[in-house]
Simulated assay, not measured.
Amino acid sequence: MAQKIRDKGRDVVLRHVEEPGARFLNWLGFSPNMITVFGFIVVIGSAAAISLGHLTYGGVIFLAGSFLDMFDGSLARLTNRVTLFGGVLDSLFDRLGEMVLYLGLAMYGVRINPGERDLVLYFALLIIALGASQCVSYLRAKGEALNIYTRGGLMTRPERVILLSLGLLLGDGIMVWILGVIAVLSIWTLYTRVVIIRQEIHGSE
């Protein structure tokens, strides 16, 4: 059910946002790889703002970078420049972008210096959220390498982007809860993808 809703929303965004945006970026002379790299640079700016304690500014910049990241694939298809290397580059910078953002959140946690117990909880959730998120993405890539569809789950990249943006825009008080939700749902998504891959592998034997 969740996957059907996600796919329908994805189709709407593709038709009404990504494709018109890709045509505009093509008119400006951007290449897909330029968009990928520039989006990553914007996320670095977001992480820098967060590390300095400017969560709201960081959230706005992060949203801008994530919005820009939507267009590299559509631009590649529009200009017939879909390449294996472009796909690898896009996935790599997506992972690096998340890593940099969490680094900014870690530096922010040190800067605000809450009580020792709260700081331990904050960092524990941050590390679990980052690690589980990366494993979710890894299982998708591994599944695709095995010709197994593994894009399902409650916490994929779009959901993580939305929740992190929400936490940054709403401020300090809610971020630890956002990290907790990402951590728990990423672990659940990780479990569901492992089950899917296991079933598909055993079913083909």
Rank of each mutant, 00 (worst) to 15 (best):
L78P: 07
T79K: 06
N80F: 11
R81H: 11
R81S: 13
R81D: 08
V82N: 06
T83Q: 05
L84F: 08
F85D: 09
F85P: 11
F85V: 12
F85A: 12
G86M: 06
G86Y: 06
G86H: 07
G87Y: 04
G87H: 04
V88L: 15
S91E: 07
S91T: 08
L92T: 15
L92Y: 13
D94N: 07
D94Q: 05
D94H: 04
G97A: 01
G97V: 00
M99N: 04
L101V: 14
Y102P: 03
L103Y: 05
L103C: 12
L105Q: 02
A106C: 03
A106S: 09
M107Q: 09
M107W: 05
M107P: 01
V110W: 08
V110N: 03
V110P: 00
V110F: 13
R111M: 14
R111G: 04
R111D: 06
R111W: 06
P114C: 10
G115S: 12
R117Y: 12
R117F: 14
D118R: 08
D118W: 07
L121F: 10
L121D: 07
Y122C: 09
Y122F: 15
A124C: 14
L125Q: 02
L126F: 00
I127E: 03
A129C: 09
A129S: 14
L130A: 10
G131I: 07
A132R: 01
A132K: 00
Q134A: 11
Q134F: 10
Q134D: 09
C135M: 13
C135K: 05
V136K: 00
S137H: 04
S137F: 03
Y138T: 11
L139I: 02
R140K: 13
R140D: 09
A141C: 07
K142T: 02
G143K: 02
L146Q: 07
L146R: 06
Y149P: 02
T150E: 09
T150N: 05
R151N: 14
G153F: 01
L154G: 13
L154P: 02
L154I: 14
M155K: 00
M155T: 01
T156N: 09
R157E: 07
R157N: 08
P158S: 14
P158L: 14
P158A: 13
E159N: 09
R160P: 00
L163Q: 08
L163T: 09
L164I: 14
S165G: 12
L166I: 15
L166C: 14
L166Y: 12
G167F: 05
G167E: 07
L169Y: 02
G171S: 12
